[in-house]
Computed example of a mutant assay.
Amino acid sequence: MDKNQQAIERMKEQKYEEAAELFNAIIEENPQDPVGYINFGNLLLHMNDTERAERFFQRALELDEQAATAHYGLGNLYYDQSDYPVAQKHFQQAIDIGLDEADAYFLLGMTFVHQENYKLALPYLMRASELSPDDLEYLFQYGLTLAQSEYISDAKSVFQQVLNSNEEHSDAHYNLGVIALYEEDPAAALEHFQRALDIQPEHVLAANAKKQITDAMNTTDK
């Protein structure tokens, strides 16, 4: 196992000081190799040392402006700071350079979601779910963004896919309940809201929606 692999293993074990020593040695041995700076930047992100992490990622880009994972690291850094326009720029650059990974597409899509540009987010969230079809978070967020973009029937299909993989997904049930209300099917909506509450009793949105339906039904019956 080389030093880089050893350092990554130390990171996984949360032995950050040992990982830092190894990454530092790698940089000293190969000061013109951007990989060492990128890995050290990722370690610093794990340690919440964002100021130094940014410097390491930028140094990697000075050595190789085509270092996609350095842009990805900066994207993560700015995303965590809620600076979504700058994060968006770096995720886009990482993908344009050739980083064809689900996380990059997902996070790029989410930068648009946080800026309420839902339709712009859709192709990236769709691509993330294609690249990682077993990741229900990617699929769910794609469905949610379809709904926010008013593609209701497509969103319904995606939420049902989520439930096909995990029938205990309370938020998928909640959103299917909202869609059922939109389709003027209060009985189906009530069923989904109740199912969400059975799974997650503290689901406030489902509880409020259920109460509104039952109150309306009680008023109608009087």
Rank of each mutant, 00 (worst) to 15 (best):
P31M: 07
D2L: 10
G143M: 13
L205Y: 10
E101H: 08
Y16N: 08
Y16L: 03
E191Y: 09
M11T: 09
R195W: 12
D96S: 06
T69D: 14
Q58D: 13
H169P: 02
D171R: 02
T50M: 11
R10L: 09
N39L: 11
A68R: 04
G109W: 01
K15Y: 11
H203V: 05
K222P: 03
M110L: 07
P85D: 12
A189Y: 10
E54D: 15
N76Q: 01
S157L: 05
S153M: 15
N208G: 08
Q212W: 12
A70I: 13
F57I: 04
A188T: 13
G143N: 02
L122A: 12
M1C: 05
L63W: 06
Y72N: 09
Q115R: 11
I8P: 00
T220S: 05
P31A: 09
L120R: 08
A147F: 06
L205S: 12
E54I: 11
H71L: 11
F193P: 10
M47I: 08
Q92A: 08
K89T: 05
F159Q: 06
Y142Q: 04
D2N: 15
F140P: 04
E202T: 13
D83F: 12
D2C: 08
F193I: 01
F91C: 06
M126L: 11
M1Y: 11
T111I: 07
L144H: 05
L146K: 01
E137A: 10
K156F: 09
A188M: 08
Q115K: 06
F91N: 05
Y142V: 05
G36I: 10
T219N: 07
T50P: 01
F23A: 01
D135N: 15
L125F: 05
L139P: 00
A68I: 09
H114K: 04
F140I: 03
I179Q: 03
G143A: 15
A147P: 02
N208R: 09
T145P: 14
I38M: 10
L61V: 04
M11E: 05
E13D: 15
G36V: 12
T111V: 04
Y142N: 09
K12M: 09
